[in-house]
């Protein structure tokens, strides 16, 4: 285990030095991203501020929801987005083969060698807005703070696992580009209170593609808002979502490897 952590650290620090070589544009790019997210949050702010709220959520609560979603998305994506989106072309180019002759697990190499430090801008913006919006919203005590941390970790793990699983499908020869497009459009729903959507979509994001667990359910639980379909128990369930999704991702990844290597017979 400790050797894996040492390896992950080494890979990430090499990857960081590679990304640092383009540091001229790094800061500018981060600033531009922060402005873009700030602007689309600003649009929602104007909308809800003028109207007073949305489905019982006041604008501060909405801001908390949106920044929580941004945080868990960017943490998860830093580990698994670009890395596994590239898997398809790495399989085609044959560079993926090189990972299979090494003593380290291929997923570890993929995740950490290309660990994406670009999300630092997202994370800073999200943390600032979360702190600012939620300071008076929630009765912060040991339990709620602990829950918040657990929820962030689980949501990030859920996002990362979903991104990994989509990428792993390229080991079955599936064109995954289109699946990412659909994933990101469903991700759009997680920025808003899901209760405003048609029932069919609520079922989709709570049960089928459980993205509601990455933002709405933990935040609604903290803020005492209703959680559709699963009720308040959903809020408790959040802390099992991370481990469960990692199990699912591990399973899909190994099946993908078995299929790629042709060990299935």
């Amino acid at each position: 285990m400790s050797s894996k952590i040492r390896l992950a650290w080494k890979l990430a620090s090499l990857g960081f030095r590679v990304q640092l070589q383009f540091k001229g544009s790094f800061l500018l790019n981060r600033i531009a991203q922060v402005i873009a997210y700030g602007s689309s949050f600003g649009a929602i702010f104007i909308l809800t501020y003028r109207i007073g709220g949305m489905a019982g959520w006041v604008w501060r609560e909405l801001l908390f929801l949106m920044s929580f979603q941004l945080l868990s998305y960017s943490l998860g994506a830093a580990f698994c987005f670009v890395q596994f989106r590239e898997l398809e072309s790495n399989v085609r180019k044959g560079t993926f083969d090189l990972l299979l002759v090494k003593p380290a697990p291929a997923w570890l190499y993929i995740i950490f060698a290309k660990f994406n430090f670009d999300y630092i801008g997202h994370v800073c913006l999200a943390l600032t807005l979360m702190a600012w919006s939620s300071i008076h919203l929630v009765d912060w005590n040991f339990i709620t703070v602990l829950y918040l941390f657990a929820a962030i970790l689980n949501s990030a793990a859920l996002t990362a696992s979903m991104l990994l699983m989509i990428g792993a499908l390229s080991l079955f020869g599936i064109r995954v580009y289109y699946l990412y497009v659909i994933f990101f459009s469903v991700l759009e729903f997680t920025r808003y209170p899901i209760v405003i959507f048609p029932l069919l979509l609520q079922v989709t994001v709570v049960v089928l593609v459980p993205l509601a667990f990455m933002s709405y359910i933990p935040v609604a639980y903290l803020l005492d808002h209703p959680i559709p379909i699963v009720g308040p128990m959903g809020g408790v369930f959040v802390i099992f979502v991370g481990p469960l999704s990692i199990c699912a991702a591990t399973f899909v990844w190994h099946r993908g490897l078995v299929n790629y290597q042709g060990a299935g017979g």
């Binding site: 030095r17 070589q21 090189l98 002759v101 003593p103």
Partner: peptide, 28 residues
């Protein structure tokens, strides 16, 4: 040990030494 002539195992953007130090850790 594996060498594929057309696919490099070295880290393209970094000095040669870094790829070796990585392998030192990877192969314990």
């Amino acid at each position: 040990g594996v060498v594929f002539g057309q696919r490099s195992q070295l880290w393209w953007e970094l000095p040669v030494v870094d790829s070796f130090e990585l392998h030192k850790i990877m192969y314990s």
